[in-house]
């Protein structure tokens, strides 16, 4: 690591920052143009958190190896009872047990 900042990396960091900030304000700017929300648009917006967060989870079951898939399944079931750090600890423990003692 013989550099502090590189021009091409700076371009990506600052370009990525502008792009990211645009995603953070664009929805607000767009929704303020409507005065009332059609019911189907509202149903869609209410689905946003589950829909988006699911896409950060489900593909890991395919790409993260069998131990990740099993850990996610266990956490899915446990998620009806516990949440937060307890849930993370359960998922992590399942994956680590399989990874170090079975695989």
């Amino acid at each position: 690591m013989d550099h502090l900042f590189r021009a091409d990396m700076l371009l990506i960091i600052l370009g990525g920052a502008v792009a990211t900030y645009l995603t953070r304000i664009a929805g607000y700017v767009m929704i303020k143009r409507f005065k009332t929300i059609p019911p189907r648009v509202e149903a869609g917006l209410n689905a946003v958190p589950a829909a988006v967060l699911t896409t950060l989870v489900a593909p890991s079951a395919l790409t993260g190896g069998p131990e990740t898939a099993i850990a996610l399944l266990v956490a899915l079931v446990a998620g009806f009872r516990v949440s937060g750090l307890t849930l993370i600890a359960i998922g992590w423990a399942v994956a680590m047990l399989i990874r170090h003692f079975i695989l």
């Binding site: 995603t23 664009a26 929805g27 607000y28 946003v48 988006v52």
Partner: peptide, 10 residues
């Protein structure tokens, strides 16, 4: 980060 558009709308 496209999901942020939906968050900021919500």
């Amino acid at each position: 980060n496209f999901r942020h558009i939906l968050y900021s709308a919500a």
